[in-house]
């Protein structure tokens, strides 16, 4: 991997972080696609959000720009709100039917 700026990047060039974030995102996306348990699917979404956070911080260091770190701040807030509402929906669905797999969530089907 060649290229770009890496002066302030903790002495390791940023491409390594970006590749790691890409792999982490891929694992999260894969888990989201194959798992049936809604809670584990939520955790896979968290993995993907963390990969995005790592990318933001790496770009903030590569471009010497604080904006990337501020964006991670906002991603954290959105992730917290998402988890609260998502788990609320899961609990509300569980009250009606005692099952955890995404296959059973066809309540909205006509």
């Amino acid at each position: 991997m060649t290229g770009a700026t890496s002066a302030l990047n903790g002495n390791i060039s940023g491409e390594w972080y970006l590749a790691l974030a890409a792999v982490l995102f891929a694992i999260g996306a894969f888990g989201l696609l194959i798992r049936r348990n809604v809670l584990v699917m939520f955790m896979c979404v968290e993995l993907m959000l963390n990969a995005a956070n790592l990318t933001f911080v790496t770009f903030a260091n590569m471009l010497h720009d604080i904006g990337g770190q501020v964006l991670v701040f906002f991603v954290l807030v959105v992730a917290a709100a998402e988890v609260v509402v998502g788990l609320g929906i899961v609990v509300a669905i569980f009250r009606r039917r005692a099952n955890a797999t995404a296959d059973d969530f066809h309540l909205m089907k006509g």
């Binding site: 991997m1 491409e15 904006g67």
Partner: peptide
């Protein structure tokens, strides 16, 4: 993921102006 890594390999990972929203 292959597309992403290839894209980073054949082009630059970062382009653009430095320190737009404030310097670190």
């Amino acid at each position: 993921v292959t597309g992403l890594l290839l894209l980073g390999e054949v082009s630059k990972w970062t382009i653009g102006a430095l320190s737009v929203a404030g310097s670190t």
